[in-house]
Design a protein around this nucleic acid. Structure first.
Lengths: 238, 238
DNA sequence: GTCTATAGTCGGATAGAC
DNA sequence: GTCTATCCGACTATAGAC
């Protein structure tokens, strides 16, 4: 087959991007089944047949959406994650124990703040809907998410928690989920949150209230002694 | 129109119930759009045309599903909620402050335990999927849920938190959401939870670990001083 | 790389006999 | 209250011209 001209390539790229953006919109709003390739093509201002050409079909486009989202989230949270990893892997002797602990607390709170902003903010509305649906009925697309960023983020938070509070690994991992849950509730149960709090939307003011609350809640959780590891024979308690 | 015979009524009731059960199954699994009335009718072993007759159409059946779920959850959580309400409304003078506080903590922990069992358990899988979807894009069905049980439960938890820990109402309401989030994460992010913890399923053993963890996490949160109310001019702290 | 056109399915609703 | 039959719209995928 003859090589494509430079113009053809550029046009194809534009089509792919338009389809991807439209697909996030429509898949996010309607879900995989309810979304129609026609609606996506219309939103992208592109002919419906081009979905088959560029992505192989509806399903290929769906997976491509999750690859795109993953790379976006990595770009957003990657730098913080890197600096945390660095701090965790740094040799212990350099600073005092309390300094190290305080530093790790700050890193954790910083990561939580970033995550909350991302999770609660408007731009993540569609991403969140896509991800939530995948969590309920994971397909191949879920692995893209978990392997792409979710697993690393959870593991990092768990490591930080353990470094700060000590205790068993299992407990730290569960606490990482508790922390996630406290952020997630504002997305996964949004309609209930709004009614419960008497809010109309989650704007800047509301986000600030959430951030302040989550911060304190997490600090409280870090202050508590870690859970006793289960499973082994119980010794006398405190 | 002539009155229906007793047999006709009974047969109609059976049809309605079969359709309702099947609709929970199929709507829960596939979502409103992806679910087909044919699939529901097949699962109920009933003719497709009967959906129109009994529920007016697909949408009517969908709303009926949420009314049914609401009544089921009320039956499950109602008794605990009643006893909490009673305790909260009881005159204050009868017992010591510490006793009252400890009692309220126990009530809260009890309610959380019940809620977690319900939320995480298998029987709620379909309900949870229906509810999560409604939270993202609320329809008339969401009001059925919120007015039917969700609002009351959240308000009760918030009242309990305030009674235990004091502080502003807003802070208590947010803490109620934190508590919900810590339970909800095991449902809303289930696929990620399983991979993060290296679990295959959430069975009895895993539920017990979750219960123990949530219990400690909530106790830690109740032990922390309440957040300062925002908004007004800040006075000197503690 | 894009386009039109269409084949082949499946969807919800409903009319009318029983 | 139930059933059969059908209307009509919407969907995905693909063949083939440009």
């Amino acid at each position: 087959m003859p090589p494509l001209s430079k113009e053809s390539r550029a046009r194809g790229d534009a089509t792919r991007e338009a389809l991807l953006a439209a697909a996030i919109e429509v898949f996010g709003r309607d879900g995989f089944h309810a979304a129609s390739t026609r609606a996506i093509a219309d939103a992208a201002d592109v002919r419906q047949a081009l979905i088959g050409y560029h992505f192989g079909g509806k399903e290929g486009l769906y997976v491509a959406v999750f690859e795109h989202i993953t790379s976006q989230i990595r770009a957003r949270l990657g730098p913080v994650a890197d600096s945390i990893e660095e701090a965790l892997d740094a040799p212990r002797a350099r600073v005092g124990r309390d300094d190290r602990r305080a530093h790790h607390v700050e890193l954790l709170l910083h990561m939580i703040e970033n995550g909350t902003t991302l999770l609660v903010g408007d731009e993540a509305t569609l991403w969140a809907q896509l991800i939530l649906r995948e969590q309920q009925q994971p397909t191949r697309a879920f692995s893209v998410l978990f392997d792409g960023f979710m697993g690393r983020m959870l593991a990092l938070v768990a490591r930080l928690v353990r470094s700060i509070r000590g205790g068993a690994e299992q407990g730290s991992r569960l606490t990482a989920l508790s922390i996630l849950g406290q952020m997630l509730v504002f997305r996964a149960a949004r309609a209930g949150v709004l009614r419960h709090l008497g809010w109309n939307t989650i704007g800047e003011k509301e986000l600030a209230a959430i951030q302040a609350h989550v911060r304190l809640a997490v600090i409280a959780q870090l202050a508590a002694p870690p859970a006793k590891p289960p499973r082994t024979t119980r010794r006398a308690r405190r």
